[in-house]
Computed example of a mutant assay.
Amino acid sequence: MNREDCTYGRFWGGWSQAERKVLCLEPPDTWQLEPVAALRLTALHAQPPRVPGHREYLGAILGLGLDRACLGDILSDPEDPCVMYAFVLEDKLDFLAQELHQAGSFSVRAEPCETVPERVLAEPDRELHDTTVSSLRADAVLAAMMHTSRTLAAQAISGGKVEINHLPLHSAAEPVYAGDLFTVRGAGRWRVKEIGGTSRKGRLFITYFQY
């Protein structure tokens, strides 16, 4: 949203820390139903630790003919390994509840749920790191988080190896904002947690973590 100077939109993925989100454009004085709903996924007759996981559920949902864009985060229940929760576009909720009966070799039950338990939505503790950058250009921030040079970071970007918020990053000069997620093919993922003030030498403080 910051990149397009749009003041009447937001990204939403069903919960505050969602990694995958949809863009909601809401002009002033309008009201819309939330576009994302939750689906409770239960593996029937499964014996932990042999239970369906993210890969099995993702494959099963895509196997029903839905596009990946219809599916948001898939979260496990830390207290019940047989249960997972999937955030999906609201208009696909009933279809999945009716048609999703198998995930991999496991029989499953999919049912809409009004609320997802807080234990599922709790953000895991991340090891935060603080550093400074010369600017909020993508190559400068990525280089700092990866502990490499700006030249190598820029080469990764120009080589098509970098995504920001799941979209290809084409320019090393792209501005970076708090919350941005960097994915580098073959290297890992980093998220900019916060952007702070300026040091005495004019460098900018950032806080980040690696997945």
Rank of each mutant, 00 (worst) to 15 (best):
I61Q: 02
D130C: 06
A18K: 09
P28Y: 07
L23V: 05
L181A: 10
G196T: 09
A37S: 15
F106P: 07
A143E: 05
R3F: 02
W190L: 07
A122N: 02
H45D: 15
G72H: 06
L93T: 04
E34Y: 06
I206K: 07
K92T: 09
S76E: 06
A153W: 01
V51A: 03
V176K: 00
V162C: 07
R3N: 13
L62T: 11
T42V: 10
W31H: 12
P48D: 06
G202L: 08
K161G: 01
A173G: 10
T148F: 02
C24H: 05
S105N: 14
L41I: 13
D139M: 01
R68P: 06
I164P: 00
V184D: 09
Q102W: 01
G104F: 09
L41P: 00
L39W: 05
G104Y: 09
S76P: 04
H170T: 15
E26L: 15
D67K: 06
A178L: 03
A69C: 08
K161S: 05
A140V: 08
W12H: 13
E114A: 13
P52Y: 02
F182K: 08
A173P: 02
R200M: 04
D29H: 12
T132I: 05
F11Q: 04
V141C: 14
M145F: 01
L181K: 09
G197N: 08
L64Y: 02
C82N: 12
W31S: 14
L204S: 09
E90M: 03
L167G: 01
R137P: 02
T151R: 05
P49T: 13
P52F: 06
T131M: 01
L169W: 12
N165S: 11
H170D: 05
G63V: 06
R109H: 15
A97E: 02
K92Q: 14
M84T: 04
D73H: 05
L204I: 15
A153K: 10
D125T: 08
A37C: 03
G53L: 08
D130A: 09
S171W: 00
A86G: 02
L167A: 14
G65A: 08
E163K: 15
T132W: 08
D180A: 01
